[in-house]
Computed example of a mutant assay.
Amino acid sequence: MTWRVGNRRNMWDRTMMGKSYFFLSLLQAAVSMEWTINAPLEVTAQRGLCARIPCHYSYPSHLNKETRVGIWINDEKWKSQSIAFHSGDHSGESLRFYNRTRLSGDLRDGHCSLVIDSITQEDEGPYHFRIEFNKDSYSFFPVTRLRVSDFTDKPSIFPVETVEGKTVNVTCTFNTTCDGTAPTLTWVTPTDEPLSVSHSVTQWGDSLTYTSVASLTPTFKHHGQNLTCRFTYLTVSSEQTLTLTVQLPPLPQWGTASALRTCQHSSLSLLSILSEDGSEKLQQDLD
């Protein structure tokens, strides 16, 4: 009889413990659901450009009015020597990240996207985000792994019809998602021909388009020569080249009226005179 009572009591204790553990698990799950993050598992960036790790986090509503500090760690665990970004104390950041990292967006609105400028191969690896309030803190997992690839981006240069003596606008563009240090766009001309250049920047979402427009008035001596658009960041540069095809302007058609056209090429001057009756007289003058 004593054995039965003890057995029932043990069973009751085990049942209550099981229920308590179940409810505790539900409570922990409910609490953890309030700490959530939306970030990719992997991001690829080109060496010399910037890397952007998109990130949005949520937290318990009772912390809405509290001040907060956002921290990105370049490791799978918390390590003070691996801090890539610290919104409250930049001096605590690792020296190799100093002045190269920043947040895109406002922490108070749940934005935690990390931007790293002038990416190097050494920056490759795991990153995770941590948020600290006055008395609460939370590290978000899984980590985002950053991959660094070779620099391959090139600007785009758009050909235009080029006629001798007629001013044309040649457009060169470069697209990027890096909104930090702007690239420098320059033109390399085939001769000492002066260029009139204008620059502009447009944004569509997270994408930026840098545009440079060069105005030039070609002559026939530019035919077959190259016009190059080059953009440069701090550590990398790239260019695109356009080979000029310069056309001669068409002969004027004036009916029975007189027309005169002088063309210089290979030290040969060709003078074509159309007479009143439509007959053509040619005179060649070798220099």
Rank of each mutant, 00 (worst) to 15 (best):
V5S: 05
G18F: 13
S20H: 08
L24T: 07
S25Y: 07
A29G: 10
S32T: 05
M33P: 00
T36G: 14
A39K: 12
P40W: 06
L41R: 12
L41S: 12
V43K: 08
A51S: 14
H62S: 04
D75H: 15
F85I: 04
D106H: 07
R108D: 11
C112L: 05
S113V: 01
V115T: 05
D117Y: 01
E124V: 04
G125R: 07
G125F: 11
E132T: 02
K135H: 11
Y138C: 03
S139T: 06
L146E: 08
F158D: 10
E161W: 02
G165D: 05
G165T: 04
V170I: 15
P183K: 04
W187M: 02
V188G: 01
T189Q: 07
E193R: 14
S196C: 01
W204I: 13
S207D: 11
Y210H: 14
S212F: 07
L216F: 15
T217H: 09
F220L: 15
F220W: 08
H222N: 12
Q240L: 00
P249L: 08
A259C: 14
R261I: 10
S266C: 05
S266A: 11
S267Y: 01
S269F: 08
L270D: 03
I273V: 15
S275V: 04
E276A: 15
S279T: 15
L286M: 09
L286S: 02
